[in-house]
């Protein structure tokens, strides 16, 4: 096996052109997914069955099926129906990029909502009782007591989910999107040098994972700055 370094040097800049798309997928669907997750969380915490039951079913379905199937259902499946093609969502669902963002947001929303719920359930009961004793309303208790502490508790698990979202963006290449993986697959199809291309791309992804992990680590330290005990 001879490693073709010139090929790596030539194709790495080409692959990195897809970085913008990868980041768009990551940030837009990460943001939309977080909003969806908060909605699902509030539905589950509402205590009303007609709100919490649909949220539970949604989470069950989206966590129980592969993200690839979800992407395919949205991209290939939805245009089967005429009413979708004539609806206002069609400009989004017509584009592979829109479909990928919708699929990734819907998927990550289900996972993140469970993570946030874990955080909310881990908030000490005493703190909420203290809030009640101070005469805080349910809304105030949630915003000023539960939410900040739950955010801090859920952050490590959330960072793992952001990393798995980054890895899922690579699946967008299956619906013709030219993200980094999509470009790499085209190059491999032309040059037939899977080792050089895929391993160098894997290293690029590893660097991003590392950066994400480090930045979440700093965020965790920052949010936990009051919890450190003075010695």
């Amino acid at each position: 096996m001879i490693v073709d370094y010139t090929l790596i040097a030539e194709s790495l800049p080409v692959m990195l052109k897809g970085i913008g798309i990868t980041f768009q997928l990551l940030f837009i669907s990460g943001f939309l997914g977080l909003i969806l997750a908060i909605f699902l969380l509030l539905m589950r915490l509402s205590g009303k069955w007609y709100l919490s039951f649909p949220a539970q079913v949604y989470i069950y379905i989206f966590r129980g099926t592969p993200i690839l199937v979800q992407i395919f259902i949205i991209y290939y499946g939805l245009p089967q129906f005429g009413f979708i093609r004539s609806s206002i969502f069609w400009p989004i669902l017509r584009e592979p990029m829109g479909c990928a963002i919708v699929a990734l947001s819907l998927n990550t929303g289900a996972y993140v909502s469970e993570i946030l719920r874990g955080g909310v359930l881990a908030v000490g009961k005493g703190l909420i009782e203290a809030g009640s004793a101070l005469g805080m309303s349910a809304y105030q208790k949630f915003v000023y007591i539960t939410a900040p502490i739950a955010t801090r508790i859920a952050l490590p698990a959330y960072s793992n989910d952001v990393i798995s979202l980054l890895k899922s963006t690579a699946l967008a290449s299956t619906i013709t999107i030219a993200d980094m993986t999509g470009i790499a697959r085209t190059i491999v199809a032309n040059t037939y040098a899977p080792y050089e291309i895929f391993i160098s791309l894997a290293i690029v992804y590893l660097i991003f994972t590392f950066i994400l992990q480090k930045s979440f680590g700093y965020l965790e330290q920052y949010l936990g700055r009051y919890t450190k005990r003075e010695e």
Partner: peptide, 8 residues
């Protein structure tokens, strides 16, 4: 853990 499954 850091590379996309599809790449592997």
């Amino acid at each position: 853990r850091g590379t996309p499954e599809i790449l592997v």
